[in-house]
Design a protein around this nucleic acid. Structure first.
Length: 244
DNA sequence: GAAAATGTTATCAT
DNA sequence: TATGATAACATTTT
């Protein structure tokens, strides 16, 4: 689950803010009793981290690859990792990593300027970090959660296709204008992703990710694992320039 | 039916 | 101590 999907959840679950947790339970190995009776003070996201704020702690949920949630309903069979029951509904979270953190000063843990979805997103800071690591492959750089927090593999492939940059280009070899373009397009695509995800039309808008042919030139797209991670890259060798 | 994938963190080994 | 390998999690799509 990538950053934009968490923004959608934050909006959908906002009705629980200010409400008391009647019961907390689930398969996650946390102290559920600690949450029962507490009032949900707020919800935040930082990249792919979903944060539930309470007066003396916060819960961090990471949905990883397969995580999902049900609001006011539940999975027909699976046991939730964390279920929060409120007077006005239920919040079930599945296949996710759940952690309680005693620190309530989130600013100690998170640099909000790094969150691609945030108003406080700072493209200049991302740019500066990239400039400091010229040897990185762009496919690794985009997936670095300390630089583009919330950016996932789909967003990586689509951003590179849009900017016509080959995933195995090195950051340092990109002309300055192209590097800036990459940073800006990552943010632009993130919000297109958000809008399409809300409409339920995300997948049909993919131009490169999981596609077989290039929508620009009709040549076959290359599917290859690139970078240190390594994650799937779908790209056009004809349209996307390799900067080395 | 096998394999791979919208991903990260904890733990163990070196 | 720092870095790196491996396990763990566990569903949907190809």
């Amino acid at each position: 689950m990538e950053g934009p999907s968490l923004v959608i959840l934050k909006e959908a679950a906002a009705k629980f803010i200010g409400k008391k947790v009647l019961t907390a339970q689930g398969a996650a190995r946390i102290d559920h009793d600690r949450l029962s009776g507490q009032t949900l003070k707020g919800l935040r996201t930082w990249g792919k981290h979903f944060l539930m704020l309470f007066s003396d702690c916060h819960v961090r949920i990471h949905y990883l690859m397969f995580g999902n949630y049900y609001l006011d309903s539940r999975h027909p069979e699976k046991e939730a990792k964390l279920t929060l029951q409120f007077r006005n509904g239920a919040w079930n979270n599945y296949n996710c990593a759940v952690k309680i953190n005693d620190d309530t000063e989130l600013d100690h843990l998170y640099d909000w300027r790094r969150d691609l979805m945030a108003d406080s997103w700072n493209p200049g800071l991302a740019l500066a970090t990239l400039r400091a690591h010229p040897q990185w492959l762009v496919s690794d750089a985009l997936l670095d959660q300390q630089v583009f927090s919330g950016l996932g593999n789909i967003m990586k492939n689509e951003t590179l296709f849009r900017t016509r940059i080959h995933p195995e280009s090195t950051v340092g070899a990109l002309p300055p204008g192209r590097l800036r373009q990459l940073v800006d397009e990552a943010r632009t695509y993130a919000f297109d992703f958000l809008a399409w995800k809300k409409e339920g039309t995300l997948r049909q808008h993919w131009e490169a990710h999981t596609r077989k042919t290039c929508p620009r030139c009709a040549l076959p797209l290359v599917k290859k694992h690139t970078g240190i991670t390594p994650r799937r890259s779908f790209f056009c060798e004809n349209c996307q320039v390799l900067y080395r």
